[in-house]
């Protein structure tokens, strides 16, 4: 019994130390790598705060544009570990007390999860201050029929999706360019090409095929396009479909990239 307790105390201490190291590394890497993202965040939060006072509808409709800029920056940040592997910088961290798992978790939390939270806060804090009912407003006059709250949830999950995709592809190919290309492919290239090809090959099913691809590649667009129907490709509400698909994809990709990072050769 005593040895069981001793083991439990020892493992608790060890995991406490591990969590501490992860947060120290997050603090360190964010101070070094995320400067551009912070500058963009500050500028955009000022713009969003001002715009919520003057034209809330326009601010909500700007969300997809802001989202794509932000997602691209987070994805670029998520590929930074690949750069550290190719340069050899990672050896310094791994030789000085950080384990591979801690290194991966620090980037996952600091480079993706924390940035996703910042994205959510940029929109929600000014909206709460100006008028919380904005969360339920739909900027239909600007071509979107999805409430802002839903857009933010999908956007946040999608940023995570692109970030983890970049980390997973980077871990497999060890090439930053491939990781960035994979994210841009999901964002725009694949949906565009599939839409183009299916409209030429099979015009009758083009819309269905494009929507299906959109659901797995660019959920914010999918929710926006399908929002006027209220029924998605699987017969559910398009917002619900997007959230479910994103949750499944994110879980699978996080597990996959975690396994890939544990085995990566340095």
């Amino acid at each position: 019994m005593n040895s069981y307790r001793a083991n439990w105390v020892s493992s608790m201490r060890s995991s406490q130390g591990s969590i501490k190291r992860i947060f120290h590394h997050i603090d360190y890497i964010m101070g070094l790598q995320a400067r551009l993202l912070y500058i963009f965040t500050i500028i955009f939060s000022v713009i969003v705060s001002y715009a919520f006072y003057t034209s809330p509808g326009l601010t909500i409709s700007m969300l997809p544009l802001f989202f794509f800029i932000y997602a691209a920056m987070v994805s670029a940040l998520a590929t930074e570990p690949i750069d550290e592997i190719s340069k050899g910088t990672i050896q310094v961290y791994l030789a000085t007390g950080l384990t591979r798992e801690e290194y991966y978790k620090a980037w996952l939390l600091g480079g993706i999860a924390f940035q996703t939270l910042v994205f959510v806060l940029i929109y929600t804090v000014p909206a709460f201050i100006v008028n919380p009912s904005i969360f339920f407003a739909t900027p239909s006059s600007y071509g979107l029929n999805v409430p802002m709250g839903n857009l933010i949830v999908i956007g946040a999950l999608q940023i995570t999706y692109y970030g983890v995709t970049a980390m997973a592809v980077g871990a497999i190919t060890k090439k930053r360019s491939m990781a960035v290309l994979s994210v841009f492919s999901l964002m725009a290239i694949i949906p565009f090409l599939v839409g183009l090809i299916s409209s030429i090959v099979s015009p009758h099913s083009a819309e269905y095929v494009t929507s299906l691809v959109m659901l797995f590649c660019n959920q914010l667009f999918y929710a926006g396009i399908m929002s006027y129907r209220n029924i998605g490709v699987f017969g559910l509400n398009p917002v619900i479909e997007s959230i479910i698909v994103l949750l499944v994809l994110n879980t699978a990709l996080i597990l996959f990239s975690y396994m890939a990072w544990r085995r990566i050769e340095i």
Binding site: Y28, G31, L32, E84, G88, T89, Q91, V92
Partner: peptide
């Protein structure tokens, strides 16, 4: 200590 470490471009103190 690795043989050929490539250090990040930061101040030594950091």
């Amino acid at each position: 200590m690795p043989e050929k470490p490539v250090y990040p471009h930061v101040k030594l103190r950091v």
